[in-house]
């Protein structure tokens, strides 16, 4: 991240986590969107394409959530720990200066 922006926002340590979380949320809503679309499509060509895209979205979701678990940014098996992390992130976001 740009050093000046980092210094201004204090987001130097958080930026990768924010980006990864954004990617995870995109992957999630992608899967939901694809599941909707697959069940709306009938033309074999489109159905086949959307099913393939759905599988790709599942792969991305799997990859990014495994990455976040490994980094300790996502505690799937420990709800308390996840809540602690959430509260931390909320505070960081609330305390960001408005530029």
């Amino acid at each position: 991240m740009n050093l000046i922006i980092e210094a201004l926002t204090g987001m130097d340590a958080l930026s990768d986590q924010v980006v990864a979380m954004d990617l995870l949320i995109s992957a999630k809503s992608g899967i939901r969107n694809y599941a909707m679309a697959v069940t709306e499509s009938g033309t074999p060509e489109i159905k086949e394409m959307l099913t393939r895209h759905l599988e790709e979205a599942l792969d991305l979701h799997e990859q990014i959530s495994a990455y976040m678990v490994e980094k300790g940014w996502y505690h799937a098996w420990d709800t308390n720990e996840q809540i602690r992390l959430d509260l931390n992130n909320i505070n960081t976001a609330l305390n960001l200066p408005i530029l």
Partner: peptide, 25 residues
């Protein structure tokens, strides 16, 4: 199909994911 897709976005255990993915297809 929609329910299983939503559940897949919430599941973390590899074997659960596998099961749901097969059932989704």
């Amino acid at each position: 199909v929609r329910n299983i897709a939503v559940a897949l976005t919430e599941s973390a255990s590899p074997d659960v994911r596998n099961l749901l993915r097969n059932q989704l297809m």
